[in-house]
């Protein structure tokens, strides 16, 4: 009886296991293996691919850009999400404000890239500025900036597009956490003598900490994997390249399958700590 049940159980999970095995488990192992092979995966090259990547100037810029994404994108998105969660909690049109900020989550990065390329349109100073960003700064007397190609700002310009898309996520999750804090606790703190700053600092922040950690980890993982925005907005040109896009280039532009695999492995290694965090959290919840 039990054996028969087990067979039925295996039948239930079989389709999932076949798909996961064929499209995730096997390919990941294969990619790790091939990262030690040459461009066509035929000759073993040891760590050559990795050595190449960590010494190549433009690849180092790729890593720097991802770090920039990780810090700036994650930091600003979480911070803005927290502030907006606290503030929108105080007004009656909370639902509307949250919906407006959340909506970009629904659309594709591709569409968002078009939207933001359009925001960043640059015309020579003698012409009228048709991009919102340049129209705004020229109103204040500044010279128009070529947001996409100017290497001192373009990474941040891309990151802003990312923030525009993801703040809604941070806002909605943190806001839900905020609503989970019972009003009696805040009242108790108030009776205990806390002012609003004390309440934020000593009650809300510590109580929101677990949820802030979850949001941060999610955003960090996404910052490491960022691809579509960069692919459509700059294709990684003008020093804006990121790991995922560089891998795509190595694969389809340069035909370097060994190096492409090695980059993918580097991405995996960067994400593993957060994967472990997810697993630990999952185990703790059981």
């Amino acid at each position: 009886m039990r054996n028969r049940m087990q067979i039925v159980a295996w039948i239930y999970v079989l389709p999932a296991f076949i798909l996961l095995g064929a499209f995730l488990v096997y390919p990941v192992l294969r990619t790790v293996y091939w990262s030690f092979f040459g461009r066509n995966s035929e000759s073993y090259v040891g760590l050559d691919n990795y050595q190449y990547l960590f010494t190549q100037q433009d690849v180092l810029i790729v890593f720097r850009n991802n770090l920039l994404w990780l810090v700036v994108f994650t930091g600003v998105t979480v911070g803005l999400g927290l502030i907006l969660a606290v503030l929108t909690n105080l007004v009656r049109y909370e639902a509307v404000a949250k919906a407006v900020i959340f909506v970009p989550m629904a659309i594709s990065f591709t569409a968002a890239a078009v939207i933001w390329r359009f925001m960043y349109v640059w015309n020579p100073a003698s012409f009228e500025q048709t991009g919102v960003m340049n129209a705004v700064i020229t109103t204040f007397g500044a010279e128009p900036v070529s947001w996409i190609t100017n290497t001192s700002v373009n990474n941040y310009a891309l990151i802003v597009a990312g923030i525009w898309m993801w703040t809604g996520f941070a806002l909605v999750v943190i806001s839900a956490g905020l609503k989970g804090i019972s009003s009696e606790i805040l009242e108790a703190a108030r009776v205990d003598g806390a002012n609003e700053f004390h309440i934020f600092r000593h009650i809300l922040l510590p109580m929101l900490k677990p949820i802030l950690v979850v949001v941060t980890v999610t955003l960090v993982i996404n910052s490491l994997k960022v691809f579509d925005l960069v692919y459509v907005m700059t294709f990684g040109n003008f020093d804006t390249d990121v790991i995922a896009n560089r891998m795509f280039k190595e694969m389809f532009q340069f035909g370097q399958f060994g190096r492409a695999s090695a980059i993918a492995v580097i991405l995996l290694v960067a994400i593993v700590p957060f994967m472990l965090f997810n697993i630990r959290r999952f185990l703790a919840e059981r």
Partner: peptide, 20 residues
């Protein structure tokens, strides 16, 4: 303000600060 009223209150749910 409540903090300046020199009162203390025990709440129905006790309202203990869970992180302390």
């Amino acid at each position: 303000a409540p903090k300046d009223r020199d009162i203390a209150m025990v709440f129905q749910t006790y309202a203990l600060y869970p992180h302390m």
